[in-house]
């Protein structure tokens, strides 16, 4: 690609259309080893860039469409000069043509896999491994995720929009990236909630049993004192019985999340590339300041939570 192409700016819809068109160009030419799709794509980009060289604003879809119309459908390029003079005829169904077309497409995909440009090869490999995740119980999905991320980064490095390749890469990226994001963002909810509920269950059971354990052996004073304090804290919440227990567990989760997000914010602040690397495309607009803000807001929330927790603990001791 020449530099001219990189100077041209497009509206988002025009950019998407151009990416689709260039994907068609590549697809039309892959089965023709005597033509370099890279070179043709670069020439087409230069052609378009030259058309709009004097434009000082982004190219709109309709402006781009007029140039693409003159360039013509890429499906015709590879067959220039090979068509019949009589032109296309209407026939019931051309089975031979259909089979040849399927064969050409399959060979085209294999050509991409074996000798195609890396960005498309990665995209097809990603999609293939994503499909294989069904019979392999998701094992290949992890590999597909890494191939997909590599394809995205390669396109970014070349300054090209991902275009039609997003349909091949994003299923794997999202299938792994979204659960990973949810696990990292909200992961502590489960262990903190389970710990609070477990402590509550133990304290309640021991109180009902007269502070003896499973073997009817009295627990130590220190243990008993701790459990009594927990139950006293629970009774500081409004309502009664189950509602107090739910509020206690919820309160513990809020504290755990505030602490986790403070740590997470500090980590993301210190390593600003991590969120966009691991959670693309969910956190694409992220920069280091967002990490600092998250740490600050969560830190304040943790401080307020700590104040409430101290008051509850103190009131429980007095009660």
């Amino acid at each position: 690609m020449t530099g001219a192409a990189t100077m041209t700016e497009f509206t988002p819809t025009a950019e998407g259309r151009l990416a689709d068109y260039l994907a068609q160009v590549r697809q039309a030419l892959y089965a023709h080893p005597d033509v370099s799709p890279d070179e043709v794509e670069a020439d087409v980009r230069e052609h378009i860039a030259t058309e709009f060289a004097r434009l000082t604003r982004p190219v709109t879809l309709s402006e781009l469409e007029s140039v693409l119309t003159r360039l013509g459908p890429p499906t015709q390029w590879a067959h220039a000069g090979a068509n019949s003079v009589a032109g296309p005829r209407v026939e019931p169904f051309d089975w031979k043509g259909f089979v040849a077309g399927v064969r050409r497409r399959v060979l085209g995909v294999f050509a991409i896999l074996w000798k195609g440009p890396e960005d498309w090869r990665l995209a097809y490999l990603t999609f293939g491994l994503t499909l294989l995740a069904i019979p392999t119980a998701g094992i290949t999905l992890i590999v597909a995720y890494f191939f997909g991320r590599a394809a995205v980064e390669l396109a970014k490095e070349k300054g090209q929009p991902l275009g039609a390749r997003r349909w091949l890469t994003y299923p794997a990226i999202l299938a792994v990236g979204l659960p990973l994001f949810l696990a990292v963002a909200f992961g502590p909810v489960v262990p903190v909630g389970a710990a609070a509920a477990g402590e509550l269950q133990d304290a309640t059971r021991l109180e009902r049993a007269g502070w003896v354990d499973h073997w009817k052996k009295p627990i130590t004073d220190r243990e008993r004192h701790g459990h009594e304090r927990v139950l006293a804290v629970v009774r500081q919440f409004p309502g009664s019985g189950d509602l107090q227990e739910v509020l206690f567990i919820g309160f513990a989760i809020v504290g755990g999340m505030a602490a986790w997000w403070t740590v997470l914010g500090l980590i993301f602040w210190a390593f600003p590339r991590w969120p966009t690397t691991f959670f693309h495309p969910l956190l694409d607009g992220y920069d280091g300041r967002h990490g600092a803000r998250l740490a600050a807001v969560a830190g304040v929330a943790l401080f307020i939570w700590g104040g409430f927790a101290y008051r509850l603990w103190d009131a429980a001791r007095a009660g």
């Binding site: 160009v25 030419l29 023709h32 005597d34 033509v35 370099s36 070179e39 043709v40 020439d43 087409v44 052609h47 003159r70 360039l71 013509g72 459908p73 890429p74 015709q76 390029w77 590879a78 220039a80």
Partner: peptide, 17 residues
Amino acid sequence: VMSEGTVYPILSRFKKD
């Protein structure tokens, strides 16, 4: 030239040849 884009694969082939 009818479809302007047709020229580019031809140039690519010529270069290869």
